[in-house]
Design a protein around this nucleic acid. Structure first.
Lengths: 208, 208
DNA sequence: CAGCGCTTGGACTTGACAGTCCAATCGAGA
DNA sequence: TCTCGATTGGACTGTCAAGTCCAAGCGCTG
């Protein structure tokens, strides 16, 4: 069974399948995507699917991991360079613009998978929960930097603000994709940022 | 075909099927629920399903409508009696407690359906979008009352605050059900309320 | 260049599921 | 009571999808 890609060629095939499957699953859901659909898109044969993933559940798991890694990579990079309010606002606007350019469809791959799989498969739910935790870490990192730069007061509850921010992202994305209106996300993110700014230190130094 | 429930008995059957199907779909997703599953739970026969709903798509549509009506009924009632901050906090804590008592599973039926169906079926997406709009109306109603009671300043952007609140609800529910921790919802809702309170009228009266 | 094992093609099996059909029953109004 | 349409039971069909299997291809390593 699944002697997982050893050759360079094998790894390439495996990745091609995962990418194709990820796209299909993102737009049709895991249950709504058949292995034949995956075959049609990736040009893979039945043996390849079962060779590399064992069964459908394994493929879905691989897709979950892939999406988590992809989204987290992007978010960690974008949030990693946030040092002031302007950076944060740029990050928010960037997300909104991306969603807008995609016609406000699809939303967040992780969020969509989480909504569908959390109740179905506990292993996948754990992976997704882990991804949200990592995303939280990236957000908290950015907030910590803002705090160090004196933009957020020292006694602010960064953990709570992190959760609030991630909620706004996920909720905003869900509303945006349901109403096909990226402005819902803009508003939600704007609210989160306003909330953060409300924790700016009060003391004498008047910023900017 | 589908000569929709005419008799009292017929209406009862139809409703029994919808309720059962709604439960299954909430915990397994629409694609993951077969008509035989629905039959097993509701004790209905194949003919009944096709008599009342035409096909599976029709049944899913009926379930969507049912869930929207149910959730909105509850929310409209709960939000309709909000007149001050304490009422609002009670409403938030009530939601969190309910989620907690269910083991933080399932989340919001509407949210889950929206995540799964928005990309799949445009008709259903529209219904769900409509439901979110109605939910927004209920929230805005509560905020308007708070504003009239002098708790929110007259120049606050209630539309934006409404979207922010609904985002916090949906995002918080998603995080809660993925991490199986109702406190994520508590924190998200707490953040939304803090955000609202930040719009309390500034004038002389010193709050707290 | 020979062999071994990773890799691939694709036919085949099995089961599940959406949807069809028709005959039987029930129930309210004439 | 009689009748007609609403309602119901359940067998049947066709399709599609998951998963199995084996033989052939291909590339690395010795």
């Amino acid at each position: 069974m699944t002697s997982l890609a050893v050759t360079k060629q094998g790894r390439a095939t495996r990745e091609r399948i995962v990418r194709g499957a990820a796209e299909l699953i993102a737009e049709r859901g895991a249950a709504g995507t058949s292995l034949d659909d995956v075959r049609a898109v990736t040009g893979a044969s039945k043996s390849q699917l079962y060779h590399y993933f064992g069964d459908k559940h394994g493929l879905v798991g691989a897709v979950v991991d892939f999406q988590c890694a992809t989204v987290l990579g992007l978010q960690a990079r974008a949030l990693g360079s946030v040092n002031d309010w302007q950076d944060l606002e740029r990050w928010a606007e960037l997300m909104a613009t991306i969603v807008e350019d995609h016609g406000a469809r699809g939303g967040c791959p992780i969020g969509t998978l989480a909504a569908a799989l959390s109740d179905t498969d506990d292993g996948l739910r754990t992976s997704l929960s882990e991804a949200f935790r990592a995303w939280s870490d990236a957000i908290r990192g950015a907030l910590t930097r803002l705090q160090e730069n004196g933009l957020i007061s020292a006694d602010a509850d960064l953990d709570a603000l992190t959760t609030i921010t991630l909620s706004a992202i996920q909720g905003g994305l869900l509303l945006a994709k349901t109403s096909r209106d990226a402005n819902q996300l803009r508003t939600a993110l704007g609210g989160a940022i306003a909330q953060l700014k409300a924790h700016a230190p009060a003391p004498r130094t008047r910023r900017r």
